[in-house]
Write a protein that binds this DNA or RNA. Structure first.
Lengths: 251, 251
DNA sequence: ACCGGTAATTGGTATTACCACTTTTCTGAA
DNA sequence: TTCAGAAAAGTGGTAATACCAATTACCGGT
């Protein structure tokens, strides 16, 4: 790769991220044409199929339109909203999770069954195992949170939480969010989840809410920290604003 | 192609559509694994790169998760992102709104702009007018709540609240919820919304959260009351359970 | 200046090969 | 018999190449 690549993901995902970054930076205005696939392949030193996969990822997100025999043209810039679902940033999704999942945890504490608790406890152990592997997935983490949402016995609550996780997965910074934000603090993550489980087992709504808030606050902090590492100066200002915003909202 | 193809699009798009159809038809439940890329290529008589492109399209849409060396696993079924769930009851939706919109209001109180306040105040007046007509709609009510969600400046929060209102509209008891639950108390509804607005104008998160909780608690009470009128004896027991559940969760 | 046809460019698809990772199966030792 | 470790099979990831189809640009003739 001529350019820097960050994640341990697949090449096409890294390349798609790079292209999205260049789009966001304004390298290719709306309506302009991206370089030819062969040129991109040569520039990034990858094969053309890989370039095609990355461009298809952009196409599915509604960022570019591919015209046969002509090229890939920019439809909209990342962040502008008309494409459903793909405009929420990792911070926004996590903030929404902080607000919603905390309340869901409180409700779940009043509704949780012994079967739910058994399932959640099993997932707790899976999370511990999962976190031992630096390249592990976050499937157990996702299942843990969804199990809590399901324990509310409220379909609307569950679907809302489920949608947030779908948004999270589609977020451009999803990988970053998962990687960096967690690798920094493995032990606390397990402890935080344990605290949530214990509050649920105690059927204590207030404790469950508090434990969930603590956990997701830590996730946000890790996310902001990870973002800071690669942020420009202007991004730093936005982060500072977010930090105070979050502090006020949770006060 | 062994199977029928419809569009004049590119092969990968046709194939992606086919796979989504099969997903929707239930051929591959959530969590199950799709056939191997080579098998799909043989079955549809296309090349493996084409299959890969189609799967990447599904992956970007958050439908499947691809695990290296293992396969592509179904994350969610198509349509579950915004397709109205027919199984969510009016009570569930309102309960979810109580949990989520209260937190959204608290966040909005820290983010609301003067323009937002002007819009919300205008909608407040519309709500008052709307409630004078016993056969009026609830458009202003909906716009009021969505404006608050938008004032959070968080796309994920707004979309979640928006989805709840979509669920509400598709709920079987939607009409009942709106009619009965409101006709019983016209004046309080306006007062409750006014309290929410004033808390937002004061930029007071705690007050905004409390005002929203008060309002939606009243909606739930009205909903339960309306339900009681037509409920059988067994329904009464369920309602009593819900009442205590709700009381505990908000305590 | 206009028109039309040809050639170059570009995306679409197929084929093949090899690598890395995962999962299963088999084998040999305890 | 059991089970841990190794081997093998399965699967996705990427590369390289070739050819086709559609578009676009160019250039010649009129």
């Amino acid at each position: 790769m001529t350019q820097e690549k960050q994640g341990n993901d697949r090449l096409y995902q890294d390349l798609a991220r790079l292209l999205i970054e260049e789009l966001a930076r304004g390298d290719y205005p709306v309506g302009s044409r991206l370089p030819a696939e062969r040129d991109l392949a040569a520039r990034f030193n990858v094969s053309r199929p890989t370039v095609r996969e990355a461009i298809i990822a952009l196409e599915v997100q509604g960022l570019v339109e591919v015209r046969i025999g002509s090229g890939a043209y920019v439809l909209r810039l990342p962040g502008s909203e008309d494409a459903p679902g793909f405009d929420a940033t990792a911070f926004e999704v996590t903030e929404a999770r902080l607000l919603f999942e905390s309340e869901a945890a409180a409700l779940a504490a009043t509704q949780v069954t012994d079967e739910d608790l058994a399932e959640i406890e099993a997932l707790l152990h899976q999370i511990a195992v999962e976190n031992l592997d630096p390249n592990g997935t976050d499937r157990a983490d996702r299942a843990f949170h969804l199990a809590i949402a399901r324990a509310t016995r409220n379909t609307a609550v569950f679907k809302a939480v489920e949608n947030l996780w779908a948004l999270r997965a589609s977020s451009p910074e999803a990988a970053l969010m998962h990687e960096k934000a967690r690798s920094a603090n493995i032990k606390p993550v397990v402890e935080e989840h344990t605290a949530i489980f214990q509050a649920l087992r105690a059927r204590d709504p207030a404790a469950a809410r508090a434990a969930m808030r603590t956990h997701l606050s830590a996730v946000i902090e890790g996310l902001l920290f990870a973002t800071e590492e690669r942020a420009l100066e202007e991004a730093r200002r936005a982060i500072a604003a977010k930090r105070t915003r979050y502090a006020r909202a949770t006060a």
